[in-house]
Amino acid sequence: MSFLIGETMRGGYGGADILNGCTIAVDKGEIAVIVGPNGAGKSTAMKAIFGMLPLREGRVTLAGQDITALSPQDRVKAGMGFVPQTSNVFVSMSVQENLEMGAYIRHDDFSDTMEQVFDLFPILKEKRRQPAGELSGGQRQQVAVGRALMTRPSLLMLDEPTAGVSPIVMDELFDRIIEVAATGIAILMVEQNARQALNIADRGYVLVQGSNRFTDTGEALLANPEVRATFLGG
């Protein structure tokens, strides 16, 4: 029994189902990556797991508890942190204010957690008084991840965290994601840079039309000739 399981999920946005029975799972301290062609249902699967999309069939369990009926807000309280691909920072607020917003569900002293975020992303400490809207794309992504970490999640979900950033920034973000997983947090990530993402993945899921086409370790998927030829550009 994995820490998180989105099991045989079916659902869509009102018309035909986009998810067609896919199952996604990840354990604490693991990195699970969802890859696949455009329109495969990758981000839809993430939204379903986070409660932003109602399931017609299937269920979501976290730490053995069925959370299928919970709202996204209640899933955050249950231990989920979600970083959307776009519009994921408050541009007019400072870096520190963005992080403080991440602690909105907490009623304790969160200064230690903020220092941990600053240790993970030193540039954010340097720019803590600067409006998030003035940061580079990669720095904004750091703010968004940091804000999610302020809730002290047991599961961190990242939707295309390296979209639009340079290869150097992508490598830095992946290094930080590995560090977060090393603290025992489960990481579930949708990523367009499939080869690089699978290189750091404990588990990989290749979705096609909302179904599991391949499920294996990241290393095994990278070595699979069919996966390489069809989804990784050879």
Rank of each mutant, 00 (worst) to 15 (best):
D202A: 14
S136E: 02
T86G: 08
V35K: 11
L124M: 11
G233M: 06
R228Y: 05
I31E: 08
E179N: 03
L232E: 15
K47G: 10
L149D: 01
S92R: 12
N199S: 15
V83L: 09
T68N: 14
V206H: 08
S87G: 12
A186D: 02
T162I: 11
L4Y: 10
G15D: 08
I18K: 08
M9W: 03
V145C: 11
V227T: 00
A186T: 04
G81K: 00
G39R: 07
Q85H: 12
E179K: 09
A48M: 04
G102V: 05
R152Y: 06
T23I: 03
V35D: 13
G204T: 10
A194M: 14
D216C: 10
A32D: 14
R203H: 11
E126G: 02
E57R: 13
M9C: 09
H107F: 05
A103G: 07
L120W: 11
Y13R: 08
T8E: 04
G11Y: 05
D66K: 07
M46E: 00
T215I: 05
K77M: 09
M80T: 00
M114R: 05
L222R: 03
G184W: 06
A148N: 01
V180H: 00
K127E: 13
A163Y: 02
G133T: 07
I178L: 14
G137R: 02
